[in-house]
Design a protein around this nucleic acid. Structure first.
Lengths: 148, 148
DNA sequence: CCTTGACTTGGAGTCAACTCCAAGTTGTAG
DNA sequence: CTACAACTTGGAGTTGACTCCAAGTCAAGG
């Protein structure tokens, strides 16, 4: 498979693929007699993994470390296991952050959709759901009470 | 609240806080008569939000856009709603990538833990779970059969 | 009032991860 | 055999998000 085909398959630039190979995020790719990259299924599996873990925020540095260990053979199985478990924790933590942001976001979007109907944005004043001002409405409660 | 206290509260550097303010990721922070930052609850709420969304991978650029719209008042409620919904999609997509990586990772870790016992790493050869070589063991299956 | 340490600003520097470029091959169509 | 597009390498440049620095201001203790 040519570099161009791999680019198309994973929607990634040739420069990035060459960069990954150069710095060791993936091992050296198989070449034709003329020296042109000709990705085997195995090469492609490495590319796919690299993209997958980069997409999950793993630093290039860690992928390089993994490839390095892999190339040192079976004696690095423990080291690689540790690396993978560490990666797992990192990703789990990051994902938790995403969940928190999503929760905040969903709350906000709810408020905004309401605001689109009323034309005015309001927030609950309990510390944690709270966001911004539009504080002029803070006293609305008191006003209401006065009303009675 | 002083900048130092906000730093401690959110485990972030003063430089980052000042940077966020400078580029508009958060609005201008309240100052003392002498010009020193004195974060109100409201300022802190902005900081908290900024950190939360940055942690979820939202680009600084988008947070700036949101603050800008916010400061333009209620006439930008629609624009802000769209921005938030777009952010939501972005985060959901990113999180999906994290889930995919986690799945791959868990499979790999399982293999590695097995390998730690046997001393040798093996992979299933069905295309999608497949990862690397250590292909020499490909024939192990056959060997086992021979054994019986 | 003076020192000392935390704060201020504007601007320059750093780092990760690409991304682009120049100068030189390779390989295919005519 | 000749074009010419697509590939190669090594190295320089860019981008986003900080991070550091210099020179000056503020505030609390002695």
């Amino acid at each position: 498979m040519t570099i161009k085909e791999v680019c198309a398959k994973y929607d990634i630039t040739a420069d990035t693929l060459r960069y990954y190979e150069r710095v060791g995020v993936i091992p050296q790719v198989t070449r034709t007699a003329g020296g042109i990259r000709d990705y085997t299924d195995e090469d492609i599996a490495w590319v796919e993994n690299a993209i997958c873990f980069r997409d999950a925020g793993m630093p290039v540095e860690m992928l390089i470390e993994y490839v390095k260990l892999f190339q040192e053979g079976d004696k690095t199985i423990n080291a690689r296991t540790n690396l993978l478990k560490e990666a797992r924790e990192t990703i789990l933590e990051a994902r938790k952050k995403y969940d928190i942001a999503l929760e905040k976001l969903d709350y906000k979007i709810g408020r905004y959709e309401l605001a689109q109907k009323t034309g005015v944005l309001t927030w609950f004043d309990d510390e944690d759901g709270k966001d911004k001002k539009t504080k002029k409405n803070k006293k609305t409660k008191t006003t209401k009470k006065d009303k009675k």
